[in-house]
Design a binder for these strands. Structure first.
Lengths: 341, 341
DNA sequence: TATCGAACTGTGACCGTGCACAGGCTGCAA
DNA sequence: TTGCAGCCTGTGCACGGTCACAGTTCGATA
């Protein structure tokens, strides 16, 4: 252990007191300067700012948190089963965007994964202990008890996508699912396809339910329930669904999958069956996740504005934490036409 | 605003004092019980535990942090350019494992992304401000200045994979890259392949460099530098590399890619050229990331023990934070033979 | 019986900040 | 001269823990 000289004491981190001393003012004034408070004389302000610079002062997060009762961090809460979390690149896109947006706003993003029941309990405990000021809820299934728990506990919560069964309770950032699906369906119709199948997502998720609604709306009388199969957004489920569809209806000329992954799975099934994409059957996806552009063939898909979604969620959550009322928000999607459809 | 009755005052969160009062002991004793301290009588312990249960007490993170000088959270720091972060499922696997392991140990995992230079500065600031107790450094390139900064600042740091240019400075959790590559090469040789090409990773990353070393070691005199092409682990780079290899050497009968993504890219190039996998050319990957098993054809690959890696990193980091010396750690990989090679 | 150490408990000081409050100063009006 | 309002500043306390230290109790031992 190195001996510590009394005079040149161990260099601890400068505190607000040190800054006050250097600037020749009191702690209160320094605090006011830091927190952008009014009622500080210009001289005092510059003196403090200079002192902050010279001392290399950084506010102590824990102390501030203790005094204000705010943690200064928000949670990115994933509630999907494991295999989806990590196959699906859309989660990563959201996470990346959220991390960036949070960092930019001086907030810390904490990643919470509620896969197993034990993990869910832990998260409930963690959140209600005040470790985070709010929660971004990603991909909740219908009537997920977690969202009720959070809302009941008064935890500021923002949902990604319309929270089925909790519409209006938690503010959400979502895309126009129905409208997007109609646009894609219209695109397929415009290309001359008439037997359009859908590989829908789980019907207890907004993307699963409303994209199917959009297809049905656009097809009208031409809608055939026999051409709908349900997957869980994963590529394997897409492959399985496609196999089931082929078995049931050999005359399909287009497939609209509710995710790029399912589209990719469908294409591999088609290919294995000797069916060419897009010559024999057109396949469209949804999300414009990373894989869409690089897929063989490149996927026609609906682009979700991931960066805007994550940014909007962070902003909305911080507003709610600050006590500002926020309405649900809907962001636009964009049809991206590539080779597959 | 609801009127607050003086008598039934607003229910604030119970503190350690409340627990002490209920249990009929002092704050100190409660603190000792909570922190597993010795020298607490059995009666006091049960009384405190009961009081904690009845009051629903949860320790205040900020207060503890202020008193101990520890934040109770660790950072998962990604330093890869964006396109890799989110295409590559291995990051997600690591992240998931780390989040779980951290949660289990009562630590919070904070996600930090250092993509742009501005982000890097922010992170330096953030980390040295003491927001986190330590850093898990993911996928650093050779002589990454960030690792030097962290080490110089005395921040406990654990690296994922051998940190090239900093061997021995920061403890690392890695796999036996050279040995793993030799095993895969041996597998290809045993299958009768003789013209084995490699799509290596970036030579400033451990996986890029040492997997190539392993191949070279195992091939010995049969090693042909013309059969090596470099990618950046992404699927597109694998596709490009494969095209370059085909141009240069038409007699290739096997390809060893340093990542599953590059293997997938290589296969799509081969397929486009009318070359069958594995009949004409065998293709092996590395990582056993999610896509390997579901790929068409399923990929032969080296499985990295992602859950063990992330868990080991968390444990190692927490040890180092606690002041325990830790040696670098090497975990075993496993050859997974599937259809592609 | 006096002494002593081990086991246990309580107390006060501190961690670094924000905030309410009590001033002080200044200039203007009465 | 006094009163007063508007700026600006300093002080004390609260936030909820941890920790060092000083007590207290009690059984064992000389």
């Amino acid at each position: 252990m190195p001996s510590v000289d009394e005079t040149t004491a161990v260099r601890r981190k400068p505190t607000i007191r040190d800054v006050a001393t250097v600037a020749g003012v009191s702690r209160g004034t320094v605090s006011r300067v830091i927190n952008g408070g009014r009622w500080v004389s210009p001289e005092a302000r510059t003196a403090v700012e200079e002192a902050i610079r010279s001392t290399g002062y950084t506010a102590n997060h824990a102390a501030r948190s203790l005094a204000t009762g705010r943690s200064g961090s928000i949670a990115f809460l994933l509630t999907e089963p494991q295999h989806l979390l990590f196959d699906d690149p859309t989660f990563a896109l959201l996470l990346r965007g959220a991390a960036g947006a949070a960092a930019q706003r001086g907030t810390t993003l904490v990643l919470l994964v509620a896969g197993t029941p034990a993990e869910r309990d832990g998260i409930e405990h963690y959140v209600s202990a005040g470790h985070v000021d709010g929660v971004m809820l990603i991909s909740s299934h219908e009537s997920d008890p977690l969202i009720s728990t959070l809302l009941a506990a008064g935890i500021p919560t923002v949902s990604c996508g319309i929270p089925l069964g909790h519409e209006g309770e938690a503010p959400a950032v979502s895309v126009d699912e129905v409208g997007s699906a109609r646009i894609m369906t219209r695109h397929l119709l415009d290309r001359g396809h008439r037997r359009i199948a859908m590989i829908a997502g789980p019907q207890d998720t907004p993307g699963g339910r409303y994209r199917l609604v959009g297809l049905r709306d656009e097809l009208g009388d031409a809608f055939d329930p026999a051409l709908v199969e349900e997957g869980d957004y994963s590529s394997e489920s897409g492959a399985r669904a496609m196999a089931a569809l082929l078995e049931r209806a050999g005359d399909i000329d287009a497939v609209f999958a509710a995710s790029d992954l399912m589209a990719a799975g469908a294409i591999s099934t088609l290919r294995a069956a000797g069916i060419r994409v897009p010559e024999d059957v057109a396949v469209a996806g949804f999300d414009d996740s990373g894989l869409a552009a690089n897929h063989q063939p490149p996927l026609t898909t609906m682009r979700q504005p991931w960066d805007r979604i994550s940014e909007a969620m962070v902003d909305m959550l911080l507003d709610i934490i600050a006590g500002v009322e926020r309405e649900p928000m809907t962001l636009p999607t964009e049809l991206v036409v590539r080779a597959s459809a």
